[in-house]
C-alpha cells in the first residue's frame, strides 16, 4: 500500500468517527436524560417548522385545510399575553392519528403534539406560549394524509421570555 493511500484511510477513519460522534451528540444520547423514552427530542428541538414536521409526522402530501377548524387567541387572532394563548382544534376527520401545533416564530416551533386513539375525539383545547406576532399552524395526520391550517396571531406581550 502506498503512503498516500494510508493517509487517505486515516483521514477517512477520522472523518467517520467525528461524524458519528456528532450524530450521537445531536440525538441526545450523550446528554443525561431520564425517562424520555417516548419524547421526540428531534422534533421538539427543531428550529424550523419544516424540520419539526418532517421528524414528527413524516413526509406526506398535504390534502386540504378545509377539514380543520382551528382557533387561536381570544378573541380569535389576537392575544394580550403571549404566555398563555388559548388554542382550539375541531375536525370531522376520522381515524386521526396525530395532531401537532406549531408556532412559526418561536425559538422551537413545535408546541405540542397529541397522539389520539379511537377512544379520544376532538374538539381539543389547550394553552400555548407565543413569542411574537406569528403564524400558528395546526396539522392533523389521519389515514396517512396531512391536513394543515394556519392562523396569524398578534401578540401584545411576548410569552417566551
Amino acid at each position: 500500500m502506498s503512503k498516500t493511500d494510508q493517509q487517505r484511510r486515516t483521514i477517512l477513519k477520522g472523518a467517520i468517527s467525528a461524524s458519528t460522534l456528532a450524530l450521537v451528540a445531536a440525538s441526545g444520547l450523550i446528554v443525561p436524560q431520564r425517562l424520555l423514552a417516548h419524547w421526540p427530542t428531534d422534533a421538539f428541538n427543531s428550529e424550523t417548522v419544516e424540520d419539526a414536521l418532517l421528524s414528527l409526522v413524516g413526509q406526506a402530501e398535504i390534502a386540504s385545510d378545509k377539514a380543520l377548524n382551528f382557533k387561536v387567541g381570544s378573541p380569535p387572532s389576537y392575544a394580550v399575553n403571549g404566555a398563555s394563548v388559548p388554542v382550539a382544534i375541531e375536525s370531522n376527520l376520522e381515524n386521526i392519528e396525530r395532531i401537532a401545533v406549531l408556532v412559526e416564530k418561536n425559538p422551537f416551533p413545535l408546541a405540542m403534539s397529541f397522539d389520539l386513539t379511537p377512544a379520544a375525539i376532538l374538539p381539543f383545547k389547550s394553552m400555548i406560549k407565543i413569542r411574537e406576532d406569528s403564524q400558528v399552524i395546526a396539522i392533523i395526520r389521519a389515514e396517512g394524509k396531512l391536513y394543515k391550517t394556519s392562523r396569524f396571531v398578534e401578540v401584545d406581550i411576548g410569552g417566551c421570555g
Partner: peptide, 11 residues
C-alpha cells in the same frame, strides 16, 4: 386513550 407531548411552548 390519549398521549400528549409538550414542548417548552406549552403555557
Amino acid at each position: 386513550v390519549l398521549t400528549i407531548k409538550c414542548g417548552t411552548a406549552t403555557a
